[in-house]
């Protein structure tokens, strides 16, 4: 027996739709306005940026805040000159460290993830659990011995110290992402290659990895962002422009009382552009990875 529900044919105010759009707009503003403000400020003259009441758009747009980073002489005249002149070096350092971390991490994680996705082996559950557990260890708990270790190797203030530490941060996450991704690659491909008498390395290199490329890219992006954003280890392990990364220099802006807000904003924007562009480019893969691994922080 079915009962037919009578739907009255009068117009109903779509409360749900209205509430949805109000909430969506409110959240949109909440998410974007703070960031909009530092972008806008980075194109303003200091006088406009600190005006009361504030001018919400750059009325007299200028590039001087950014040009100060390129031209060290001009930087000397800007207040907060030291952090300003260190900014280009720190961007270079961040780029090198994050790229190297992404690559090293990819190699190590690919080997490990392959074993979890293709081989049945004793201890695999325990090993996976241990990987996850190292992700839970707070960085602060290992920073002191790590610092002493690097000091005794003479590796303080070098890229290598940062690359090694960031690789260990990112490794558990990327193993996790790749393990899930590799499982979705059909086994038949490798079996076909084996029938064609390809060796294991040949099979991996010319059959398996190309198919798994999207997952590899996602994992590399994850590792790159981890390394780019990290602050505490960089604060301990670096001291000069030889290895200082952009978060360390950006923090210097905050501790210098004379810094102009507009210059600080420009440095902040430069520091956020690479991870932001990557996040937007690889949005879907990253969201999948985050949801699957539930791993960050």
């Amino acid at each position: 027996m079915t009962t037919v529900v009578q739907v009255p044919l009068r117009y109903r105010v779509p409360f749900k739709k209205i509430a949805l759009y109000v909430l969506a707009v409110a959240f949109g503003l909440y998410l974007v306005l703070p960031f909009y403000w530092i972008v806008a400020m980075s194109f303003m003259h200091e006088a406009d940026a600190i005006a009361v009441p504030p001018s919400w758009v750059p009325v007299h747009p200028t590039l001087e805040n950014y040009l100060g980073f390129v031209n060290p002489d001009a930087a000397q005249e800007l207040v907060g000159g030291r952090a300003v002149s260190e900014t280009p070096y720190s961007l270079r350092n961040s780029l090198v460290v994050a790229t190297a971390t992404a690559l090293l991490n990819l190699v190590l994680a690919t080997f490990a993830a392959y074993s979890f996705s293709r081989l049945k082996f004793r201890g695999s559950q325990v090993l996976l659990l241990l990987y996850l557990l190292t992700r839970m260890v707070p960085g602060i708990a290992i920073i002191i011995p790590f610092y002493l270790l690097m000091r005794s190797f003479g590796l303080l203030d070098t890229y290598l110290a940062l690359i090694l530490s960031y690789t260990t941060f990112a490794l558990p996450i990327t193993i996790w992402i790749l393990k899930d991704f590799f499982r979705s690659v059909p086994r038949e491909l490798e079996e076909a290659a084996r029938v064609d008498r390809c060796g294991w390395f040949r099979t991996m290199w010319s059959v398996f990895l190309p198919v798994a490329a999207p997952g590899l890219v996602a994992a590399a992006v994850f590792a790159f962002m981890t390394a780019w954003n990290e602050f505490m280890f960089a604060l301990f392990l670096t001291s000069t422009t030889a290895a200082k990364t952009i978060p360390v220099v950006a923090a210097n802006f905050a501790t210098d009382f004379n810094t102009q807000f507009t210059v600080m904003a420009a440095a902040g924007v430069l520091a956020v552009v690479p991870p932001l562009v990557l996040a937007l480019l690889f949005q879907r893969k990253l969201v999948q990875g985050m949801a699957a691994g539930s791993v960050k922080g």
Binding site: F27, M41, F231, A265
Partner: peptide
């Protein structure tokens, strides 16, 4: 789709830059 992209914005922001940003605000 736009809201989802915006939702990723704070995630991509390094904690240090987040601190700088709110300091000016």
């Amino acid at each position: 789709g736009l809201l989802l992209s915006l939702a990723l914005l704070p995630w991509a922001m390094p904690g240090v830059v987040n601190g700088l940003m709110w300091r000016t605000i």
